[in-house]
Design a protein around this nucleic acid. Structure first.
Lengths: 282, 282
DNA sequence: GCAATAATGAAACAACAGTTTCATGATTAT
DNA sequence: ATAATCATGAAACTGTTGTTTCATTATTGC
């Protein structure tokens, strides 16, 4: 249930004045701050006077700021904790398709993480920590997310590489792998036959395979992996939903960052600063 | 989420006076209320005078109630942050990490779709339907998801291309674009400077820009886009969360598929059958 | 039971939040 | 260009919050 305040702001956004837009943007961005911050503080953060802030809420139809605060509290008490299913009335408000989509995605996410074992994640993080090199692999539809994963982890540690970055270079890349290296595999059914050959090679060269896949592939993948993190990927159409997968790899990266601690943090800072310099050329 | 306030109360609970125990109980029960309620309100709820409440916080070692409020805010920002740095990820105790992660992601998803306007999605789907060609663009961390988007849509229609697939080919690719083509842009802050130039070119060549971005970039992107679909990307660390973005592009694809109807479905079937044949060779 | 001490609330007070007024600067229409 | 309207911040003002004082009421130790 989006707060009435937010809905009201969006509805009237086009007609707001410059200062009011600053406020609107701030509030939409940081919706929770309405609950915790005073109008004066909000005005300061938005860079307008408190007079403008007071008027803003009046123009939105509230008698005073107190009314805003009370409404926000009331809405929080109704919707907290963040709900896992979408009520029918919610669906009406946002259009059937969006509501149904949201509900399915929430379900995927919730189930994925409720079933996720923190010891497995920690184990995966540890393997990655100990690995001389990390190879990321995603074939077909999973190539995109594999690239994202590589980027995520290469901010946190050295030697994170995409496996088979050009089609056909499997052999070369695989030849470079060593024992204790981690193969971070993202794969959803239908698993292409090519995967089988890569995994059998991985086995012989003693790669530690960390697999992120869907629930139904869990057992199949467990046979060839050290750690498997299964996700719920149910969808209406267009193949599996990557939403929970993307969230799971993110959690893995966060866990790794926590595990690796300072060194990961330092690296992230360095990478950022390099990027900044780089940007100034483009 | 054990706040210092709560710890302090628990530690000293035995030695508290009657009225202070009432306060303590209330605060332990409803920890979030410290963030949202005034000391006066808390006193009332606990059934004590505000004098007692003021003294209570002083006895706990705070200079005044304001210090309590600020500390509570700070602690909330650590477990529910807005900013995009790797700092603090190590402060998360792993057990709770999954729950906290899930909660944050659910919030991102829910807010994203509650605020999403179905007319905008439909408009985007329509633009894509009418476009002779669709160019997908994601720079930096968004390149991965851009590839995924291209794949999704290329199952549904012809002529879906990744823009600047090799760095440096911007110019060539952009030269090939025509009016009514759609540029499907996925971008999150910090937006690289290169984006500006690409967008200004897109404008002159009358590309219809459909942008998927985060809430904070909404207004900035609205100026250069036909349709903007904003997502909530709040995260603990490691930059923006792509979860809601990935879900949003999926919804867009689903909407497009529904819009395009039969033809998209047929195409998907053909693509699938080609892939099957292909697989049998690998 | 009776001081001595501690806890408490009412009221006084100081600080602050939120609203309104007013003067000024910006924008729009003519 | 000029007037008219609008948006805005500074400051005045009002009401609220949080702290402190003080008188009263419980508790404690003896």
């Amino acid at each position: 249930m989006a707060s009435r305040l937010v809905l009201r702001i969006q509805e009237r956004y086009a007609k707001l004045t410059a200062g009011e837009k600053k406020l609107a943007q701030l509030i939409l961005d940081r919706q929770d701050d309405i609950l915790t911050h005073s109008a004066t503080e909000i005005a300061e953060m938005a860079g307008v006077s408190k007079a403008t802030a007071a008027r803003f809420f009046q123009h939105l139809g509230y008698a005073d700021f107190n009314e805003v605060k009370l409404q926000a509290r009331e809405e929080r008490n109704q919707s907290e904790p963040y709900e896992l299913s979408v009520t029918n009335s919610d669906q009406m408000a946002m259009g059937r398709a969006i509501g149904a989509h949201l509900e399915l995605e929430l379900k995927n996410l919730t189930r994925t993480f409720e079933e996720m074992r923190s010891d497995k994640i920690r184990e995966a993080a540890e393997l990655i920590d100990k690995a001389p090199r990390v190879w990321v692999l995603g074939l077909g539809a999973e190539e995109g997310i594999a690239r994202y994963v590589r980027l995520l982890f290469s901010r946190l540690r050295h030697s994170v590489m995409l496996l088979g970055i050009n089609q056909g270079s499997w052999a070369e890349d695989l030849a470079m792998t060593g024992p204790k290296d981690v193969l971070l595999l993202i794969t959803l059914p239908p698993h292409p036959p090519l995967l089988k050959s890569i995994l059998s090679y991985a086995k012989t060269s003693r790669l530690n395979v960390v697999t992120i896949t869907d629930r139904t592939s869990l057992f199949e993948m467990q046979r060839v992996s050290k750690v498997v993190l299964p996700c719920h990927v149910t969808s209406f159409a267009l193949g599996a939903s990557l939403t929970a997968v993307s969230s799971a790899v993110r959690l893995l990266a966060l866990t790794y960052a926590a595990h690796a601690g300072k060194s990961a943090q330092q690296r992230a800072e360095i990478v950022d600063s390099i990027k900044e310099e780089f940007d100034s050329f483009n």
